[in-house]
Design a protein around this nucleic acid. Structure first.
Length: 206
DNA sequence: TGTAAGATCCTA
DNA sequence: AGGATCTTACAT
């Protein structure tokens, strides 16, 4: 029988590029969450947004603060923040140190349903991680996970696209859509959002 | 110390 | 269209 190797993990070197280059490349990659008890959760990244220099929507646009300081650090580190007092959002820090930039992970297509998700929920399974706040809730990502290295064996890490996904893209059977970012009051015209077309797990179309 | 806004989500 | 809910950032 055929054996498929798991795609290689994503390293800091690969993330050491402009966030607008990393964001589309992360579509189709996998986010892996390891719980304290060793349980593994996996989700396909289907929607991302880039935040970077000279971007008024970027949290460190004005100055470095206690919250955003990890964005000035090395690539391959998490940046988690709390929004509206309720939801957490997960970013991957990109580019070289001293350049504040990150990619917001906006939606995941889950491989398996976490135990703590109530199946009685009216929510369709495909929508459980369809949004930056929802995916952090599904994966139990909170402020304790900010500033952590994305490395295998840690709480979170990333894996490259598998061969099948890349082939679907190359053959035009699926494609990426690039649009403006969601929920902003500044930098609203920058086309720095990408999502997988024809995917039910994307937070919203257009 | 006070205050206003926020890279969201759910309900009506 | 509006409310939940509270941290953060910046002004005073």
């Amino acid at each position: 029988m055929e054996v498929f190797d798991s795609p290689p993990d994503i390293d800091a070197q690969w993330l050491s590029r402009d966030s607008t280059l990393v964001a589309p490349d992360l579509i189709g990659c996998t986010l892996v969450r390891q719980m304290p008890d060793g349980t593994l959760l996996r989700g396909l990244i289907v929607e991302t947004e880039a935040y970077g220099l000279n971007d008024p929507a970027m949290h460190a646009y004005r100055r470095a603060t206690a919250r955003n300081q990890v964005m000035f650090g090395e690539p391959g580190i998490t940046y988690v923040y709390l929004i509206y007092g309720i939801y957490h959002c997960l970013n991957v820090v990109t580019d070289r140190a001293t350049v504040p930039s990150a990619v917001l992970i906006r939606a995941l297509q889950l491989e398996t349903m976490p135990d703590w998700i109530d199946p009685q929920q009216q929510l369709k399974p495909q929508r459980v991680a369809a949004g930056p706040g929802k995916l952090c809730r599904a994966f139990k990502i909170d402020l304790t996970l900010t500033g952590m290295p994305l490395l295998p064996g840690q709480a979170l890490w990333l894996e490259h696209r598998d061969f099948q996904f890349q082939q679907q893209l190359d053959q035009g059977k699926s494609s990426l859509v690039q649009t403006t970012r969601i929920g902003l009051t500044q930098g609203i015209d920058l086309p720095w959002r990408w999502y997988l077309s024809n995917c039910a797990a994307v937070s919203r179309k257009g």
